[in-house]
């Protein structure tokens, strides 16, 4: 614990942590401004324009509505005959509705959890950079060699460095989450959309924030482990970017079966208390090939266990490498 305390104090004194915190605050301010902008009441000019657009659509519907409805129902019937499925083109919902042109402003309770979940990616990236840099910089400056001449027990040193990155991630992520939530509330309150948040919405918000916090700690550990493994901040960050581009995008597109095992799917499942993804499934019949999108669910348990397993494997690998590596 003594070594962990020393490492935590070292990380807290690093300029990189301050830089990450400032970057996080800047991002939170931008997100808050975006939310404030989207929750502003419509101006009179916007209201007039919306009213004009609505009236124009009503007039078009009154003139051509019967014909449009008939076309829709005809296409729906043709598709039903072709596939044998009970398809619904939504023809009975074609008549213009006023609310389409005068969108309701989202309330704080309706969007806060989603905004937190979306912003979590940014927080995780910041924490990863802090973790990677904490260990890689120490190795590249040679300070690790000096450290080991004071504490030669390598696994103990490694454990303290990885754990401290996780511990330091907590106040960073917590602070930014609190700031973001406060910013969201103020943005909604200023625009008169902060009220009506019920207990369930608050529970949802709190649950999401706590899960992001835990994931932040895990990301700190992963970043520090990558820093030890690859020894250079640029190499570790390059690996992360490469993984995101190659595995999470290209390979995932080529092999849809990988979807539930992708990091982004698991992260989404953890942060959002379960998530869904879509695959296209095709069947070949006498009439041809018919494809349709199928929705799959990934549970919070699946996401959390997979992320935990990957982290454990990475930490064990780092331990095995660091224990035997020559420190020069």
């Amino acid at each position: 614990m003594r070594l962990l305390g020393v490492e935590v104090r070292r990380l807290l004194a690093r300029r990189m942590l301050l830089a990450a915190a400032l970057a996080g605050v800047a991002a939170v301010v931008l997100i808050t401004l975006g939310i404030w902008s989207s929750t502003r009441p419509l101006t009179q000019t916007q209201l007039d324009a919306a009213e004009r657009a609505y009236q124009a659509e009503v007039e078009r519907w009154e003139a051509d509505g019967d014909e449009m409805l008939a076309d829709c129902e005809e296409a729906e019937a043709a598709e039903r005959d072709l596939t044998g499925d009970d398809v619904d083109f939504g023809c009975d919902q074609m008549e213009p509705q006023r609310q389409w042109f005068f969108p309701e402003r989202p309330a704080f309770g309706d969007v806060a959890a989603d905004v937190l979940a979306t912003s979590s990616v940014l927080l995780l990236v910041l924490v990863l950079v802090v973790g990677v840099s904490a260990t890689a910089a120490e190795i590249s400056t040679g300070a690790l060699g000096t450290w080991l001449t004071f504490v030669p027990q390598r696994l103990r040193v490694l454990a303290s460095k990885l754990a401290s990155a996780g511990v330091v991630a907590l106040p960073l992520v917590a602070g930014l989450l609190v700031l973001l939530l406060a910013g969201l509330w103020v943005a909604h309150a200023v625009n008169g959309a902060a009220g009506g948040t019920d207990a369930e919405a608050w529970r949802d918000i709190a649950g999401t924030a706590l899960r992001i916090l835990a994931l932040g700690a895990l990301a700190g550990v992963v970043g520090a482990a990558l820093g030890v493994l690859l020894r250079h901040t640029a190499a570790a960050l390059g690996l992360l970017v490469g993984w995101a581009l190659v595995v999470e995008s290209i390979v995932a597109g080529l092999v849809p079966a990988l979807q539930p095992w992708l990091l982004r799917t698991s992260v989404a499942a953890w942060v959002q208390d379960g998530t869904t993804y879509w695959t296209t499934e095709c069947t070949v019949t006498a009439d041809g090939t018919s494809c349709q999108g199928v929705e799959h669910h990934v549970s919070l348990t699946h996401g959390s266990l997979w992320l935990l397993a990957l982290t454990v494997v990475l930490v064990l690998l780092t331990g095995a490498v660091f224990r035997r590596r020559d420190v020069v």
Partner: peptide, 27 residues
């Protein structure tokens, strides 16, 4: 055993005192 291997390598962004305090605390 106290050792300096090649050039001295401590944390460049920290003060001399902070470097020593961290090492002292570690041991």
């Amino acid at each position: 055993v106290g050792a300096i291997v090649e050039s001295p390598k401590l944390f460049p962004a920290f003060s001399g005192r902070r470097n020593l305090v961290l090492l002292a605390d570690a041991i």
